[in-house]
């Protein structure tokens, strides 16, 4: 078991590097997270509507202007509302959304442990 632990420690140290992504990946990530207003079931990345194509150009431009991911989200949120983001941020509207599944997971665990008194 000791060997196993040691192995994991070394392994994790090696894993923490080059976390940065380039602009292309960032652009894809951002457009995947924006919802298209014309075809409302799709992300901007997936959509080929005129609106979505303009959004893609604009995201590119904003990235070149040096805006961060979150600044770009804020920009679109201000124009079109929270709806435009596929990744709802944690605020008073979405506490239940984010925390209820986790709560269910914990309650589930509690039920399992409480109801099944396992034989030693």
């Amino acid at each position: 078991m000791k060997i196993l632990k040691l192995f994991f420690v070394i392994f994790f140290i090696f894993s923490f590097n080059n976390l940065a992504a380039n602009t292309d990946d960032m652009k894809i990530k951002i457009t995947k997270n924006l919802r298209c207003l014309i075809c409302q079931g799709q992300s901007v990345y997936d959509s080929d509507s005129e609106f979505a194509n303009s959004m893609k150009v604009l995201v590119d431009k904003k990235l070149k202007d040096g805006l961060s991911e979150n600044q770009i989200y804020d920009f679109f949120k201000e124009k079109y509302g929270q709806w435009i983001l596929y990744d709802p941020e944690l605020n008073k509207n979405t506490y239940i959304l984010w925390l209820l599944p986790i709560l269910i997971f914990l309650i589930g665990g509690a039920i399992v442990v409480k109801n099944f008194k396992f034989r030693k």
């Binding site: 995947k32 997270n33 919802r35 992300s43 509302g81 929270q82 709806w83 435009i84 983001l85 596929y86 990744d87 709802p88 509207n93 979405t94 959304l97 984010w98 599944p101 986790i102």
Partner: peptide, 12 residues
Amino acid sequence: KISVGPPFYHKL
């Protein structure tokens, strides 16, 4: 009105 999309499901 909010949207819940792929990032939400992936994260959780």
